[in-house]
Design a protein around this nucleic acid. Sequence first.
DNA 1: CTGAAAGCGCTAACAT
DNA 2: ATGTTAGCGCTTTCAG
Lengths: 351, 351
Amino acid sequence: MPRSVDVARLAGVSQKTVSRVLNNEPYVSVEVRRRVLSAADQLGYRLNNAARALASGRTRSIGVVSLGTALFGPASLLIGVERAVRDAGYALRVVNTMEGDSSGIAGAVESLLEQGVDGIVISEPIDEQTDEQTDEQTEPVRVDVPVLVLGAPSAFAAPRVVATGVSTRLLARVATEHLLDLGHASVHHVAGPQHWYAARDRLEGWRAALRERGCHEPPVQHGDWSADSGYAAGRELAGDGEVTAVFAANDDMAIGVIRALVEARRRVPEEVSVVGFDNVPVAAYITPPLTTVRQPFDAVAAEGIKLLVHAIEQPGADLPTASGQPVELVVRASTAPPPRTTPGRRRTTSG
Amino acid sequence: MPRSVDVARLAGVSQKTVSRVLNNEPYVSVEVRRRVLSAADQLGYRLNNAARALASGRTRSIGVVSLGTALFGPASLLIGVERAVRDAGYALRVVNTMEGDSSGIAGAVESLLEQGVDGIVISEPIDEQTDEQTDEQTEPVRVDVPVLVLGAPSAFAAPRVVATGVSTRLLARVATEHLLDLGHASVHHVAGPQHWYAARDRLEGWRAALRERGCHEPPVQHGDWSADSGYAAGRELAGDGEVTAVFAANDDMAIGVIRALVEARRRVPEEVSVVGFDNVPVAAYITPPLTTVRQPFDAVAAEGIKLLVHAIEQPGADLPTASGQPVELVVRASTAPPPRTTPGRRRTTSG
DNA sequence: CTGAAAGCGCTAACAT
DNA sequence: ATGTTAGCGCTTTCAG
């Protein structure tokens, strides 16, 4: 493996000059730069990042703590993060925390810190297990690099938390209002697992919309993001004659709900409208095509990483460019006005 | 930041002994080990990986070149890879190659090599652009670490390629045979983009099944994995009265196909059967529930990483434990026997 | 079982 | 605009 001294020798310059060229530092003549580059190329020279990191104290890498799930949301967010990190000239290191992991986020952060990262992204964190027995005096990790928390405020206590993701509450609200605007008396909700901030956030958005319109708040169905759980919730809902509109916290659950309704001979959208969340690629092609709201994952990731990199490179004041992403409701065929009912003659199931 | 000498001082031992303890090297008395560990804990000591890498020449990290897509297959594979890598005690670095990337895989590999990785995983590679103008004398990257290619043989020329992923051909074959077994005269295929090895592989599996049974091979429809493209293919297929069975190269496209058929008033599965590929989580909940084949992503990733780590740690002979994964066809409601037709009276659309 | 010395390949400060 | 001198914090010999 050729080292920078080898390049220097071949180019007839000092080793430091090679370093200058490779780091695009100023004060290098064009001629020398050319010679160095050519020598490096000729030798097939590759910079040794470990040495660079050791000497400079910076690794030029960012670590991300992500959920080990192929769910559309987390997966899309990770892709956005990788792209943004790479564009910023950093390398990406990934640690997944499986749900129910004992060490959890703290352990993942610890391992990233040990690897040496200049910044950390915590993507869509879920609440730590606060079981009594797990609490073996877990002293909080000492985090000395900036941390970007994507999708949950205050989920991680660290000195340098730079941004605390997007609120999907507004999106949930828009989804709910869409149904209300169609004339539905109220909207049922199939929520995600409540130890996910994203799930709680959407639930609150739904609740807020209902309150503002003075609508009755029906009991919440709880799912785990899977179509499977949506199906289970849908079976409950299908038995309730009051249900005319359902907002599911993600598209997969919405698909499960629709399936349950269809099996129960409740027509979608004629009898029951369903709205999802995410706009997964197949949303437009299921039957009926699903009305949903699109999440701007790439934009969120890009903006977050911009902030994080800023915090890494200029540890001064940070710019809270909370440039609100546009809300995009995608209306398809799964939503419609409620079935006509003569007021007063409406059959009620609730006691 | 405390260093290992600080720990040594506090524990009253030499710095080398600290190193021994932290690396679980033998020949350290229990008492000394305890003292060192306690001192390290007390100081909040964290090993510096850059220094370790510089001194040892190994980074204990593995790099993965992945596609920047949230498609179920690639995303699932990445998760499996992360898990396996972590279980093996390595860190994971990720570089995505966006489709149509000019530098492509070679560039991604180069950047991983510069970061310093002990091994490289190339996940589901697509063919490099072989356009004339892109061929600017791209000298092949000099790769001096073992490489694991997941999902495509010989896609990357390197001295130490250890394994060359699973063949999905067999799975495609099983899917096709399922339709043939139901009594269909032939099976149409909606293929993935042909610069993906996975797509070609499945196409060949389909073709092999047809050939073996002496079936006529209808023209192939080409998609890009999206439900959108499946829908377009489905519209073509819907217009052809001969079509009674369709095998799509992934579930998303299958969903698109079904949508197109439904819109064209061709009933699934009564008139046309559809089989997908992957067993995405919603497959069971669309209408009709989709028959598909499951891919064992986790097992594939685990086995591949096992091989890679072996190649890294014992650069001797490698064990080709090609322990074939079990094939799993998931039969649901989207497939059924073909509609009854009186021989000779069948309406034909083709000229 | 434990320790001392010698780097790993680079960047950071200070020359020149 | 370029070169010199010190380390960065570990692991690796090699001695005890």
